[in-house]
Amino acid sequence: MEVIPAIDILAGNCVRLYQGDYEQAQVYNSDPVAVAQEWIKKGATRLHLVDLDGAKQGKPVNLDVIKAIVTGVDVPVQVGGGLRTLESLKQLFNLGVAGAIAGTVAVENPEEVKQWCVQFPGRVIIGIDAREGKVATRGWLETTEVEAIALAQQFTDMAAAIIYTDIQRDGTLSGPNLKALRELAVAVDLPIIASGGVSSLTDLLSLLGLESLGVTGVILGRALYTGAVDLTEAIKAIGPGRLQDVPLGDNFSTFA
């Protein structure tokens, strides 16, 4: 299982939110590039970037920071936040981003996102952010009536992977939502990347029970920044030496 550090960018800073609340943003570092390089030194094999300004404005905003990170590290970088158009998608790929995360647009215009999946095989990830099983959009500011599982099933055999974030657990260190992750993994034949709530190595080990169902990665945010989880120890516990044993699927091959 791959352990993926998160770098959330707001006004050029590396921050963490509590349950997706922009009013509860805590700045951890004013230099996201330095943060990215530190995670690489500790063994990260992939980075997860979120353009929080972009998520609110509906288009990528922190492009200079994203470009600096992509060019400053030697691992794949996946980016989400504000990706609503084909133009924005191409903009990210032109920066060298390995994978682009479609969230709001996957809910509001799924047919367009399916076309992206065909045009850029193995590079479009569906980001599903949910509250009590219902998908939230536009930087988590709006909650829809769309069921997370129903949305994910639309992209079976098309998307590179699904990133599932439990908003109510994100930034809370309250543990991952294993029940929701299990239900999603059983219902969808795509690699699932878990996000939200991980607070300890014990939480990470609990996710290994879902690995055989297709939960192939986990994104770590606040737990890393507070020191609750040491990245090197986390990788030793569940990651990258075991990566070759985890079937990621053909769609994920160019992204692995």
Rank of each mutant, 00 (worst) to 15 (best):
M1K: 04
E2M: 11
A6V: 05
D8Y: 10
D8Q: 13
N13P: 03
C14T: 03
V15D: 07
R16P: 03
R16K: 14
Y18E: 14
Q19P: 01
Q19T: 10
G20P: 09
D21W: 07
Y28I: 10
Y28M: 12
V33N: 08
A34C: 14
Q37L: 05
E38K: 06
W39D: 08
A44Q: 10
H48N: 06
K56V: 12
G58T: 09
P60T: 13
L63E: 06
V65L: 06
V73K: 00
V73A: 03
V75A: 08
V79R: 01
G81W: 01
L86Q: 13
K90A: 09
L92W: 06
L95G: 00
V97F: 10
I101S: 03
A106P: 05
E108F: 13
E108M: 12
N109A: 05
E111N: 15
E111W: 04
V113W: 12
K114H: 05
V118W: 07
I125Y: 00
I126S: 08
A130D: 00
E132D: 15
W140K: 04
E145I: 13
E147W: 00
I149R: 03
A150F: 05
A152T: 14
Q154I: 09
T156R: 11
D157R: 03
A160E: 09
A160F: 02
A161Q: 11
I163G: 06
T165A: 07
D166A: 04
R169I: 12
G171S: 05
K179R: 09
L181F: 08
E183S: 13
A185E: 01
A185F: 11
V186N: 08
V188K: 00
V188I: 08
D189Y: 04
D189H: 00
L190K: 04
L190A: 08
S195A: 08
G196L: 07
G197H: 11
V198G: 06
V198S: 08
L205V: 13
L207C: 05
L208D: 11
G209F: 02
S212F: 07
S212E: 07
S212W: 06
L213P: 01
G214S: 09
V215S: 02
T216Q: 00
I219S: 00
L220Q: 05
R222L: 14
A223H: 01
L224W: 03
Y225K: 03
Y225T: 01
T226M: 09
D230Y: 03
P240I: 07
P240L: 13
R242V: 13
G249E: 09
N251W: 01
A256N: 02
